[in-house]
Each structure stands twice: as C-alpha cells, then as structure tokens.
Amino acid sequence: MAGADERITAVRAADVEKTRRRPAPEPPQWWIEYGIGVRRTPERVHTGDCRMGSRGRPTTAQSVRELLLTVPEVVACPLCRPDSELGLLDT
C-alpha cells in the first residue's frame, strides 16, 4: 500500500504544479449582470475588470451597447461606467 500512496501523492503534486504554472484566463472585456428569479433578466452591464455584482456572463461590446440603448430597465454600472467607455456618454 505504501507504493500506491506514494504514487497518488506524486500525481497530486504534479497536478498542483501544472495548475500553478497555467496562467489565469483573461477576464472578459464586457459582462452582463442578471437578476435573481426564474426569468433572470439583464439588470446591469459592466466592463470586464469591474468587480461589482456577482451574477454575470461575458458578452460583447455590441451586446452591451444594444442593451443600454434599447432596454430601459438595464443600467450601466456607476463604478466602471461602460456607457462612457463605449462612447455613449461624454465623460
């Protein structure tokens, strides 16, 4: 049994080292924050590096632009200001 335990330990250590070397994935450039509930409708849009909100999915700049211009219930995050970054508002 000692040989099997040693092998398991070695494999786990190799996995940890492999994970440590792997670079972190790039954050998305834009994301949409969704509400709570059955429908989970879009509520707010953010730039990719914003840390406000927690229920989101990555998206494109075009999707963010469309949501801000066509869905009155969707607002731009007041912290990261994606509307300004997209040129929808003058800063």
Rank of each mutant, 00 (worst) to 15 (best):
D90N: 08
S54W: 11
I32C: 07
R12Q: 14
R12T: 13
V38S: 14
A13G: 06
T59L: 03
G48F: 05
V64A: 01
C77T: 03
R20N: 10
L68P: 04
A24L: 14
A4G: 07
E26Q: 12
P72H: 08
D83F: 00
G35T: 04
G35C: 06
L88D: 00
T59A: 15
A76M: 00
V71T: 11
Q29N: 12
R44G: 01
R44W: 04
R12H: 11
R81M: 01
A10K: 11
T70W: 05
E6M: 14
T59P: 01
P28T: 10
E66D: 15
V45K: 01
M1R: 12
E85A: 09
E66P: 01
A2H: 13
P78I: 07
T59F: 04
R39H: 11
R57L: 11
L79W: 08
P72F: 01
G48C: 06
R55C: 09
R65C: 09
A13T: 09
R39E: 14
R57I: 06
R55Q: 10
T47S: 08
T47P: 02
R40I: 03
E6C: 10
A2N: 12
L69V: 06
R81W: 00
S54P: 00
I32L: 07
D83W: 01
A4C: 14
E73P: 02
P23C: 04
R40T: 10
R51L: 12
Q62K: 13
V45L: 03
R39Q: 13
G35Q: 05
D83P: 01
A10W: 05
V11M: 11
A2V: 14
C50R: 02
T41F: 08
P23V: 03
L86G: 00
E66T: 14
T60R: 02
P58T: 07
L86T: 07
C50H: 04
C80A: 06
R81D: 00
A24V: 10
R81Q: 09
A4W: 13
G37I: 06
A4P: 07
G53S: 04
P27W: 07
E85R: 13
